[in-house]
């Protein structure tokens, strides 16, 4: 059984629907016991890292995830789930799970000086604005092979909605990168843990493919 962790952050049912579409059973749960005894764990999420961590600590989910990581259970973080596996997040200066060394940072923004905008010129010299949050479809440059990338092509795009992203200290934890003004890590992993900053459940067929690969992954 796949446990989809409910820590009060985000639309869990959309992840459950995608998993079910792929033909796998899952339960949405906030029970640390059930999480610890599941075969696979997905922790999705939108919202703030601080609120997510607070909820996790209150229910003991943080320890269940740390134990599951040590116990080599396949784990998949999505969006905020990709940030809270770091040691800390800049978002409200939150202490996180620390499964991967490094922190979650926000996109650089001198937003006040230029009226909430960063103006760049693209190759057509059209005036363009980089808005934060980074929202919409963007590419994924797979910088390392990973079993979850089986079948993924360089032209595939994924759906993002976020203002923060993970910055692993050890570059070997970075599997995929995306460009939005800067280049940032959008897919990271370590041993039995993998996480994407983009929403696998909203990224069409490439997203479903990574999700499907996770459902059969034997790290």
């Amino acid at each position: 059984m796949i446990a989809i962790v409910d820590y009060g952050a985000g639309n869990l049912t959309s992840v459950k629907r995608a998993v079910s579409y792929l033909g796998y059973d899952s339960i949405i749960t906030d029970d640390p016991e059930k999480i610890a005894h599941s075969d696979r764990i997905i922790f999705p999420g939108v919202g703030a890292a601080g609120a997510a961590m607070e909820m996790m600590q209150k229910r003991g989910i943080d320890n269940a995830l740390k134990e599951s990581f040590k116990a080599k259970i396949p784990m998949l973080g999505i969006c905020v789930g990709c940030q809270i596996i770091m040691e800390r997040s800049e978002e409200n200066d939150t202490v996180c799970l620390g499964l991967i060394k490094g922190e979650a940072k926000s996109f650089p923004n001198n937003m006040k000086e230029v009226g909430n905008r960063i103006v760049i010129n693209d190759k057509n010299a059209l005036e363009r604005y980089l808005k934060v949050p980074h929202m919409g479809w963007n590419g994924l440059n797979t910088v390392q092979n990973h079993p979850l990338f089986n079948g993924i092509e360089q032209k595939d795009e994924f759906y993002f909605v976020h203002s923060y992203f993970p910055v692993p200290i050890d570059k070997s934890n970075i599997y995929g990168e995306t460009q939005y003004g800067i280049t940032f890590a959008s897919a990271i992993g370590k041993e039995n843990l993998f996480a994407t900053q983009f929403h696998l459940e909203k990224s069409g067929e490439p997203g479903l493919l990574i999700l499907k690969n996770f459902c059969t992954w034997k790290p």
Binding site: T13, S14, R17, A18, S20, Y21, Y159, E201, K202, S203, G204, E205, G207, L208
Partner: peptide, 8 residues
Amino acid sequence: VARTIFIP
């Protein structure tokens, strides 16, 4: 619709 498509 939510069970049928996987885009926003």
